[in-house]
């Protein structure tokens, strides 16, 4: 890990009249997986949505590769090299798997084709159900499609929101394995409630509580700190 790729400095955000983020600050270094942890409703998903420009930044700054992206529109942020896998996966239900991928592909060059082949090897189900509508896939397959769609472009950073949510343990293992492979080429910012999964693939962590970052460190340290885990994550 060398330099900061993404930096949030005292970011505040509202959803309608509710003050959800009240001072979120953290830095994501290039390479590896940074995990955002916290209880339900702490503001983790809102943090990812605010980075993507889907929620407006009220106060504070968000910089990506040293450039302020807090005032940009969502598509401009995405085109800076940030891929996003939302909590609900955002699969286009009426489009086939192939069409979902085609919408996502910004280019049709050699590199994109190579990434597409790589991701289809990683998730063979997508190849198998290439002509099936996205809405007819299982929860796990939808998650794979959502991740594949974000990975197919040469993004420097992937924001992945709760990829294990609602999935059977065997599928969670598959998704975990895929993220582990992706982190070799791409920096990942992961929001995850499943601590087993997060601790397995995460390098560093930040804990968000009541819309503020309250703790940070290396994942290995957190695994040993039972008091911290109980206090902020409710894990005994």
């Amino acid at each position: 890990m060398s330099s900061s790729l993404l930096k949030l400095d005292q970011v505040e955000a509202y959803i309608q009249k509710f003050h959800i983020l009240q001072g979120v600050s953290f830095e994501v270094e290039k390479g590896g997986v940074t995990v955002l942890l916290g209880r339900n409703g702490a503001g983790k998903t809102t943090t990812l949505r605010t980075i993507m420009g889907l929620n407006q930044v009220g106060k504070g700054t968000i910089t990506f590769n040293g450039e302020n992206i807090g005032d940009l529109q969502t598509h401009q942020i995405a085109n800076k090299g940030i891929g996003y896998v939302p909590e609900d996966q955002g699969v286009f239900g009426d489009l086939t798997v192939g069409e979902n991928m085609r919408v996502a592909m910004k280019k049709e060059d050699e590199e994109t084709t190579r990434r597409m082949e790589w991701v289809l090897e990683l998730f063979p189900d997508l190849k198998k159900f290439w002509k099936k509508p996205g809405g007819a896939l299982s929860g796990g397959q939808k998650q794979m499609l959502a991740i594949a769609r974000a990975y197919v472009n040469e993004n420097e950073l992937l924001l992945i929101d709760e990829p294990s949510k609602g999935l059977a343990p065997i599928i969670v293992d598959k998704v975990t394995e895929s993220i582990e492979q992706m982190k070799e080429n791409t920096t990942i910012l992961l929001v995850e409630q499943n601590f087993m999964m997060a601790s397995k693939i995460g390098n560093q962590f930040f804990i968000i509580d009541d819309g503020k970052t309250v703790h940070k460190g290396q994942m290995e340290e957190l695994k040993q700190d039972k008091v911290l885990m109980k206090k902020y994550l409710g894990i005994a």
Binding site: A78, G90, F92
Partner: peptide, 15 residues
Amino acid sequence: RAGVMNKEMVQSLGI
């Protein structure tokens, strides 16, 4: 067609 289904996701894909 994707925009009819999910505008936010289309934007998040850089469109």
